[in-house]
Amino acid sequence: MIESVNTLSALRRRIASLDSVAATAAARVATGHVSLDQALGGGLACGRLHELFGGVEDEGAAAGLALGFAQLLARDGPLLWLRTAVAERAGGMVYGPGLAALSMTPDHLLIGVMAGEAMLLRAAVDALRCPALGVLVIELRGRAPLLDLTASRRLALAAEASGVPALMLRIGGEPRPSAADTRWQVAAAPSRPLPGNAPGMSAFDLTLLRQRAGSDGLHWRLVWDNERGRFGEAYGDGRDERDDHGQKGGGGGRPAPLSGAVVPLPADRSAADRAA
């Protein structure tokens, strides 16, 4: 028994020496959302691969969240967004004025529109080997058959060697075994409305599906704060808010708002400014 314990620990040591990912601790970047940062042990890890899954319908939200994460991880370095020509046709082109409006700097952004997925993945590995890059975003649509465990492992190793964080944005794809550090599911969330029932700041429903050596299955609602350029806590519980407030635009099929429902006071300054 004691012998087998010794053998096991020796094996563990041997595996640990092979698996350098676990050996080195990565620098972490806080997202600004307190409980999310706590669950991640300080924030998103640099030099790691992070996967973001979003449905085709939630494409805008998934891309927005990826841009937000990328913005934080890049720390004023250049941001390279790799996508395929098919994705650009189906999902629309990246629009600089919209990024500027979210306080995400479009002048640091490089966009690579690749002919196919094979070329995209090759370019991604090359880009991750360049330590001067701030962050890499890889956008893949659909099943992405070329992205197997080997390919994702290659990306993760390249990211770890250079310290460049990589965000894998999967639109309409199914999670499969991968070498990613974290895996997330992103969906759009109803925003906190402005006076006049106008859509407010971008909100996201975020689920942590998997975390290497950490807890998972957690769920948060994030709001992008374009004043400070980071994520923030969403207001209390969004669903109650919606039932109280979100009906005037067109509430077909939903119960009418209760008369006398109190319009909640906006907590952040932006909405207060608008009301004033």
């Binding site: 494409e59 805008g60 891309a63 927005g64 841009l67 999902g91 629309g92 082109m93 990246v94 629009y95 004025p97 919209g98 990024l99 500027a100 409006a101 979210l102 306080s103 925003s191 402005l194 106008a198 859509p199 407010g200 700041m201 971008s202 374009n226 004043e227 952040d268 300054r269 932006s270 400014d273 608008r274």
Partner: peptide, 13 residues
């Protein structure tokens, strides 16, 4: 103004 929600989209068709 900073703090207002974006008036322009991030993806344009």
């Amino acid at each position: 103004e900073k703090g207002d929600p974006p008036m322009r989209p991030i993806h344009l068709f």
